[in-house]
Simulated assay, not measured.
Amino acid sequence: MSPKSRLYTLVKAWKNKPFQEVRDACGEPWLGLSSQALEEHQSWSKRQAISHEPIFNRKGTKLTGSLFRPLLTATDMQLLRLFMEGLDAISYWYRSGRFIPGILPLPTHAIASSKYIDALSDLILNSRLPVGLVALGMHSLPDAIQMDSCKEGLLRMRRLGVLLHFMNFTGDAHQLQWIKEMQMDGIHLNMTQFRKPSISTDALANIRSSPYSSTQIYASHVGLVKDLENASDWQIDHCYGGLMMAPISRHQMLQVNDSRLAKTILSLHPQQQLNPNGDK
């Protein structure tokens, strides 16, 4: 049996078990994993992996979500295991009293695979998370061969209450057509690309006009003040990147309310405090 087959068998056997949180002091098997996988998880847990990139509103005053970065570079053999870790982090925040949506990006060929979608569906259903907490990030447009199967995979995810995001929007007309047809819930712009004058921002006006008005726009890789100025000028809804806050661990995420940028602004312009008598 190949490693990939064993992974699908694991998901199949695990789907009927109640969802459990990751235990940082692991003394019991987690999610029915093998002893080898458990040892790998214990090592990960001890490291408190810096895996979650906080997402804020444009002003940085409110945490609006998280991007699970390990999935951006995962191999096919790692996808389901990391997807489970991403779901478990969202569940951990939810049980801790924080409603933090998590974006779990996946390569297009995985979304077009019925076997991957079957496994992802089992994982999502078993997590018992509320609708709106899990978002699936799509890296790129499918090719002509994958087009129909990718649409079917996305629609299956949507029927489970999963939000759909397009991760690398460049303003291309084919991307706009795809976003319109699939009614994507979120679009992510790489702000380093939009620093170049050769890249037109006219596409943003098209997103803001019907039928894109309900789509949330995310600015990624916000690293310069100019990026933030552009995000404000273009009325972008959410921002994330080094200027807002560097990636953190899942436990640290529970302590986050606003961004590093918002804290800096507040320190420069402190709010006036009232004394006990109500006077300034």
Rank of each mutant, 00 (worst) to 15 (best):
G278A: 13
Q36T: 12
E85A: 11
L67H: 06
R98G: 00
G86N: 02
A110C: 07
P276Q: 14
S34M: 05
H251W: 10
Y92Q: 12
K59N: 15
T73H: 08
N57L: 08
S220I: 05
G241V: 02
Q271T: 14
I145G: 11
L160F: 05
G27S: 15
A112F: 07
L136W: 04
P70K: 06
H188T: 12
L254I: 02
L82G: 00
A110N: 08
S209G: 04
A37D: 10
F68M: 01
A173W: 12
P130A: 00
K62H: 11
A173Y: 13
K12D: 12
L31W: 07
I117A: 08
N168C: 11
K17I: 10
P18E: 10
F56G: 00
Q48L: 04
P101E: 08
P276M: 08
S113Y: 05
L80T: 04
F166S: 03
I187K: 01
F19H: 04
E181M: 05
D279G: 04
P247E: 01
L38T: 03
D258Y: 10
T75C: 08
W30P: 03
I55S: 02
W234T: 09
Y94V: 04
P142R: 04
S96V: 01
F166Q: 02
M244P: 04
R6K: 10
L33A: 11
K17E: 12
I187H: 06
E229K: 15
S66V: 09
M244Y: 02
S43P: 04
Q271S: 14
I117Y: 04
H52R: 09
L189M: 15
S220K: 15
G32V: 06
S121Q: 09
E39H: 13
Q235T: 12
G153E: 00
M253Y: 00
A49W: 00
H52N: 09
V134H: 03
H221E: 14
S232W: 14
W178K: 00
C239M: 07
N257S: 14
A203I: 07
M84V: 12
L120E: 07
P247Q: 02
C150K: 05
D76V: 01
L38N: 12
G161T: 08
T64E: 12
Q272G: 11
L80D: 01
E40Y: 11
L87H: 04
Y240D: 03
F68T: 01
A89H: 02
L104S: 03
S220E: 11
H52G: 00
V131F: 08
L10S: 11
Q48R: 12
A135Y: 03
T61L: 05
S210G: 08
A135Q: 06
K4E: 15
L67K: 06
I236F: 02
H139A: 13
G186R: 11
P107Q: 03
R260W: 07
P54G: 01
S140M: 07
A203K: 01
S259R: 04
K115A: 14
L141W: 08
Q183T: 03
P70F: 01
L120W: 12
I207L: 15
I217R: 09
Q235H: 15
N277T: 14
C150V: 02
